[in-house]
Design a protein around this nucleic acid. Sequence first.
RNA 1: GUGGCCGUAGCUCAGAUGGUUAGAGCGCCAGGUUGUGGCCCUGGAGGUCGGGGGUUCGAGUCCCCUCGGUCACCCCA
Length: 449
Amino acid sequence: MVTPRTMPGVLELLPAEQVTFRRMLETIRAAYERFGFVELETPAIELAEVLLTKTGGETEREVYFVQSTGAREQGLEPDLALRFDLTVPLARYVAQHEQQLAFPFRRYQIQRVYRGESPQRGRFREFYQCDIDVIGRDDLDLRYDAEMPAVIHRVFTDLEIGPFTIRLNNRRLMRGLLSSLGVGDPSHQSAVLREVDKLEKRGLDATATALVDVGMAPAAVDRLLETVSYRSSSLDDALETLDRLSAEFGDAAGGAADQATVLEAIAAFGVPEDAYALDLSIARGLDYYTGTVYETVLDDHPGIGSVCSGGRYDDLAGYYTSSKLPGVGISIGLTRLFYQLREAGIVGASPAVTQVLVTLMDPAGFAYALEVGRRLRQAGIPTETRPAPSRLGKQLKYADRLGIRFAVICGEDERSRDTVTVRDLRHGNQDEVPRSDLVRHLRTLIDQE
RNA sequence: GUGGCCGUAGCUCAGAUGGUUAGAGCGCCAGGUUGUGGCCCUGGAGGUCGGGGGUUCGAGUCCCCUCGGUCACCCCA
């Protein structure tokens, strides 16, 4: 025999948890659609040539290549690969279908992606990403950057998993700031920003050491860390700080003005002030972000880390088209989010979707039980019926395990009176009601919750 | 890719200095109750002690190799 198991790094759920997962997914989808994003699906498998243009050597290590058995037998190199995110397929899609799309193109995409990394707690090789992006043609107004926090706010409010903070920063602002501090070379700036991004995790001292290691002058390191340790306490506070940064660091003025525009627009979108903050230590490792960057954390569970992140990029599809397609987007890693919430005991099993089990104890009751089942389904109540008789205790136990709330019992006694017994397994009580009254009776019980 | 930690039942773990037939809790199955789930009681199934080699009269325990898992770094959702 072969031990039944999955490879590490995949998440497989039991039915009661799958319901919870699906509910979260539908919550996210509903919020995305409420903001006017349209759904997009792309294939899990892309041509390797298309998928790997944009990536450097780092990501390529994590890509799963795909090859048919036939091709492998012929000794051919794999020419297909599994997508490792949804942004690259989006770029390909927009470039490919540019003429048929209306811009700004607002799409959401909720699908699984694949990364061949060594698995760790909360890191998966197969996971769901829930993305939204707005893609402009030639240009895209800065205020679109403010719509992302508005959507995130909607999503995380609807998910009901506690208070959260959307942290924002701006890479243009940061590059200007670094330039004023004598770090002018873009790749040097990137190296510095990568270290700054780890400030919260590693602390001031370790970060200072790391910054000196990447070639920053100690005096500049002190000033940078002092500046970057800032997190706004309110919108006005953030705007004042941006003004001060413009005055203090001349090269940062442009980025600071951008960020102020975005913050003011977020307020105009109606996002409450306690749900977002300017945080100058958020840098994001990815270099393709050029302006606003986002990270969202759950206030009561900082250990979970960022549950949603994204940013603004100047040109989405430069590898596929000469059209300039700037965009802004965010992504929720739902698999990791669900896993972490479950570990923290914030989410768990949901009650069964099935509401009623119609039991069957004797073969003579078969037709009667099926008629009762039909009646319930007609009324839109998800109902399981038993095609074969068995002991009532077993059937109640079965319903209990599945989390089915009601058992409808129609044995000989009930049939002789044209009634059914409705047992509420959650509360442990039961009533005998006329068969014609069953649906109304159940509705009353369900509505009482 | 680099480094640390850990492998005993489906799960969580106990098995001091090597010593008879490897245990517990939870879970699972059956019965107690042929029309009443959870709680309780009784019984049962389930293990090549990750794998291979070695030392020994004797290895879950000691040694070597190997495989797997896991955590940190890196990177990210």
